[in-house]
Write a protein that binds this DNA or RNA. Structure first.
Lengths: 224, 224
DNA sequence: TCTTTCATGGAACGCAGTCCCATCCACGCC
DNA sequence: GGCGTGGATGGGACTGCGTTCCATGAAAGA
């Protein structure tokens, strides 16, 4: 998993991505790429491991962040998943221009799209493992698998929407989607049948009112 | 997508898999493999495209079956997804010994596990496209993405459970799981709850949960 | 029988990734 | 200052995948 050089500067990988995007992925040899980032072919492979790993260099960072975030969180499981996933997206889009360049390169290069599937699968594994740890006893086995895959899929969908300019704050939009998604799985992520303190909210509303208006009133009550 | 030779006999690919499983994937060169299936190196690449595509040769068949099944179905969307996914698994496990051998090979070979992710992603795309076609108007965009990914994830989980001997009828067990999964998405796949009057909403929640999670749960109730 | 077509085998090539070794530089030690 | 030592680098050779091009042969058709 590209455990090659901990201290590889991120600017060299963005230089590599720029070079690949300009000249084309297939058209640039590993030697070209090494020269573009200012090192020999030997050390290029030592640092990045392979020609396509240089494109996904900072995924290692994001993945490590995700793992520690899920380990150290004090949030309820559903909230932890929502915020951790949104944080990953936020991290990947920290430099919007670099992100756009990277995904333009991937759009043009089938081999990199395939490689990305492998990379993102590592996130899925982390999610699934966490869910298996926190889920209620008796939860069916398929829950962790599908929810883990869903988190990655929602993340990717939000990313694509941002790339197409449909949303401006991709992480916030993603968090909204994920709150809905995790609410589908709420019964397996929260233990609402034990002695923890609970509160009851009763909202009476007219059928003429839209769900949104009811929701707004409920949100107002919750804020107090 | 290995559109190489439509008439490649399946027994030659199982012979190739057996050879790879016995001698090891990395240890067998393409020339060895070509000889093992009785052809020259040239024609081997012409027929299978690459060394690892030979392992996934029948996925092309299963994928084509899935596409036509979803196109021609008369079932309700949720049922169509359940039965089509179970059918894929049934097809892949039609020859149990060959399936076990194939997955034993994949267990030993990281490169093939990576490759499998790329292959199965094609199923995800087919599912997602179908869901987008049949979903109710106004369905949020994340639904098709996450449900498509979930179907593949549940399929893979059922396959792994079968490989570990936990279930005997993998397809039936998968169908059961998928019925539960699709029921989570029922409101976007069926239009059976229109015009019903609802006036009272009761939300029970833990004080430990964040306001956002409570809101999501309330929104979920409103939508039903 | 001649021709055309198509699948095959064979040979060469480009290039990714690995391995090995020589070099160089920054240390610490005497 | 001289000197060994460890780690990072560069260079070159090597393996093996996948591609390309060409020659061959067999089957099909005129």
């Amino acid at each position: 998993m590209s455990v090659h050089a901990p201290g590889t500067a991120p600017e060299s990988s963005t230089a590599a991505i720029r070079h690949l995007a300009e000249r084309g992925y297939e058209a640039t040899t590993a030697e070209d790429l090494a020269a573009a980032v200012g090192m020999s072919r030997s050390t290029f492979f030592r640092r990045f491991g392979s020609k396509d790993d240089v494109v996904f260099a900072d995924h290692d960072h994001a993945l490590a962040r995700l793992e520690t975030a899920l380990e150290d969180t004090t949030l309820a499981p559903a909230d932890a998943l929502v915020s951790a996933t949104a944080d990953v997206l936020r991290l990947l889009l920290r430099d919007p221009d670099a992100a756009r360049l990277r995904f333009e390169l991937m759009r043009l290069t089938p081999a990199l799209r395939d490689r990305e599937l492998v990379i993102t699968h590592r996130y899925e594994r982390v999610f699934t493992r966490y869910i298996r740890e926190v889920q209620q006893p008796g939860t069916p086995a398929w829950v962790a698998s599908t929810l883990g895959a869903s988190l990655v899929a929602a993340h990717n969908a939000a990313l694509r929407a941002w790339l197409r300019g449909r949303v401006t704050d991709a992480a916030a939009a993603l968090a909204g989607d994920l709150r809905q998604l995790t609410s589908l799985y709420a019964r397996w992520l929260t233990n609402d049948h034990d002695g923890t303190e609970r509160r009851v909210l009763v909202a009476v509303y007219e059928t003429a009112g839209s769900p949104e208006s009811v929701l707004a009133a409920v949100a107002e009550q919750l804020r107090q």
